[in-house]
Design a protein around this nucleic acid. Structure first.
Lengths: 214, 214
DNA sequence: CAAGTGAACATGACACTGTCATACTCGTCA
DNA sequence: TGACGAGTATGACAGTGTCATGTTCACTTG
């Protein structure tokens, strides 16, 4: 958990840097292998040694490129949360309709279903020792911005008078997002029938919207 | 993860059993120590050796009583989820008012805040290797029954005509529960300001109730 | 009462984990 | 050509959960 002295792999875009030797093993290969192992064997099967073996290098490579398992998890978090964001924001531009908000949340839930490891890494704490790095969590805030935009568009369309306040849009966005997340959680735990979740989540969000101005 | 041959500690209520020797070290002492270590050092610091040292016995005790770390986590799950249930159902009898549903969910969220380890063990997967045992998860279903009762009472009071259908009560209960859980998740991840969560969660649930019959 | 039985407990060992110190390779630059 | 330094490899260390083995000892049975 010591982030000190760990170079961010983001500024490794230039392979030759300050006269140093160009890395013979790409950091991407390591993250790729980690992701494959994660999907195949879970967080338990994704060990430094297994990753190094999969790439065909020594364990030290993980420490040179990421400073250790924590740094590698940070990089994984970046990649996986970006995937969540891309999938959630690829729906369309906010139209302000109820249908758009429903589609956005439905897309979000389907993404959480498709990449459970990503969801787990972003919203839970699947590795006991690991807590997320400071710059890795900005992706979550970024994704939330899109939800606020969608909520603001909805308020603009449905509000009787005047321009909706931003704070009200944030409130609505948090409400809708929380509800969607709650359904994901209960489905993951096994308390909810997945086939029925879509219908019910839609109904809940419709109810929130219908009763929002009450 | 091999539950085979592991006696359920629930039927150890009678210390003398089939001629066997009564256990000199109570299983409760082990779970107590595990819970203390969990609160102090997290899931990472709660190891078999540390637990055994805290109780003052050997590691084997964990295996005799619980069959291993998995069985101990099952027992911890039982105890902690029971705590969540007790706190959530200790509010009062369902009155069918909106205030009661709000109080129940608020209590639930405060419990999740007070015992984050319990929440994590019940609703997340904090230990990579461990997946919950079959009989340990019935507590979740039990707690949900109380929410359904509260939702049914609310429907009975607010419904215009006739007796509410049980399926509609279940739908409403899942919606309310999911929303409350979603706020807990976002607060845990750090996306939401805890001091503002109470107000907003109340507003979201009020909106759901207001728009439920729409 | 004495022998036997078997559960509870203790201990050493095994494979595994992340991490670090150290040694080695080898491209780059003075 | 020599020094430098980044990338890589390897051995070691303290941890982890788990299991095989050995010991203790209360209770049952002959």
């Amino acid at each position: 958990m010591d982030d000190a002295g760990v170079a961010d792999s983001a500024d490794r875009s230039d392979p030759i840097e300050r006269g140093g030797r160009s890395p013979s093993v790409s950091a991407d290969a390591v993250v790729d292998a980690a992701e494959v192992l994660l999907a195949e064997a879970g967080f338990d099967g994704m060990s430094v040694r297994r990753i190094a073996d999969a790439v065909g290098v020594s364990r030290q490579v993980v420490y040179t490129h990421f400073g250790g398992m924590d740094g590698l998890l940070d990089e994984l978090h970046r990649r996986l949360s970006q995937r969540l964001i891309d999938a959630a924001t690829s729906v369309s531009e906010p139209t302000g309709t109820t249908a758009h908000l429903l589609a956005a949340t439905a897309g979000y839930r389907s993404v959480a279903r498709r990449w459970p490891d990503a969801y787990q890494l972003v919203f839970e704490r699947p590795v006991a020792d690991y807590s997320i790095g400071p710059d890795a969590e900005r992706f979550g805030l970024e994704s939330f911005g899109h939800v606020v935009d969608a909520a603001e568009a909805w308020l603009r369309v449905t509000a009787e008078v005047g321009r909706p306040r931003r704070s009200d849009a944030i409130d609505l966005a948090r409400a809708v997002w929380s509800t969607a997340h709650g359904f994901v959680v209960l489905e993951r735990v096994g308390f909810a029938d997945p086939s029925d979740t879509d219908r019910l989540c839609d109904r809940a969000i419709r109810a929130i919207l219908a009763g929002w101005h009450a």
